[in-house]
Design a protein around this nucleic acid. Structure first.
Lengths: 149, 149
DNA sequence: GGAACTGTATCGGTAGCGATTACGTAATAG
DNA sequence: CTATTACGTAATCGCTACCGATACAGTTCC
């Protein structure tokens, strides 16, 4: 696992869809337009939107006038859902295997692993307080939401 | 930034030092011994312990019978301090630059960036509740500490 | 003086990611 | 019905970052 840009791209794409009020198939936004806004390559966007689609966050349709649209109101999509949709996690490293046989050398890795999981859970919990709609709010209002931890 | 193992190695090393009761220079533990416990290469350990030393968490001495020792009680070293000492962070990606000129395309990246920072802060805050001493406690007691979020 | 150990520089191997190209499928426009 | 648009996926390329290993200078103890 690693330093992936999937989560930032996903968050940006969802916010863009909300800004464009793409709430139904007839208002679908093409991957090329989303890619131009990030900016990145259309294929990178489609890789992400495909995962968001499997998570039930957005719909997508091929063909002319096709593209992606939101399946839920922007304020109902929290960022922890987005993070899980793209299989992201707070990456602080992986606990080492430790030395077999040594009692303490075997217990420390489990404890470190538990700490890493706790940190990841805390990050996800923090993201659950932020919605896609919050990403479009004015900076002042957005910071107010971000600080109400 | 990336998928570094520095933080897990640092946490393991500090826990090992606490277990060995290395609280003064005359009880210093060599990098080779720490490396055998992780397990990893002695140089990898020294790269990490050098950073921990600059952060004031441990002392180190070269020469025969040299090595590293703790400068503070294990229960006074919290894992967020360790994370910062090795320049780690919850790696959820980097906010995209966005498109210049478009007002919304320029504001979304700032909002995404703020969300990433908030998540990182939440992870660090969670780690601040865990000490190196907690890593050595029994699994039952350790989980009790981890759940008292 | 010799042995042990740290801190740092450097090199090779490896893994992961983004960007790009390409292709099959689907859906609309004319 | 055909051309066009657009998604989803696979394959490839170049890049970057990390770990592991070797080497070496400086430091400390016997």
């Amino acid at each position: 696992m690693s330093d992936s840009q999937k989560f930032p791209v996903a968050a940006h794409a969802l916010a863009y869809l909300a800004h464009k009020e793409a709430f139904s198939p007839d208002r679908a936004v093409a991957s090329a337009e989303l890619a131009a806004s990030v900016p990145t390559n259309p294929v990178v966007v489609r890789r992400v939107t495909a995962m968001l689609g499997k998570a039930g966050l957005i719909g997508a349709r091929a063909g002319a006038n096709g593209g992606a649209w939101l399946l839920k109101p922007a304020q109902d999509i929290t960022l922890d859902t987005v993070l899980r949709a793209v299989h992201g996690c707070a990456n602080l490293g992986t606990a080492p295997p430790g030395v077999k046989g040594c009692p303490v050398g075997a217990r420390i890795p489990d404890a470190v692993r538990a700490a890493l999981i706790a940190a990841d859970a805390a990050a996800a919990e923090r993201l659950s307080l932020i919605s896609v709609a919050d990403l479009l709010a004015d900076p002042a209002e957005r910071d107010a939401v971000l600080k109400s931890a």
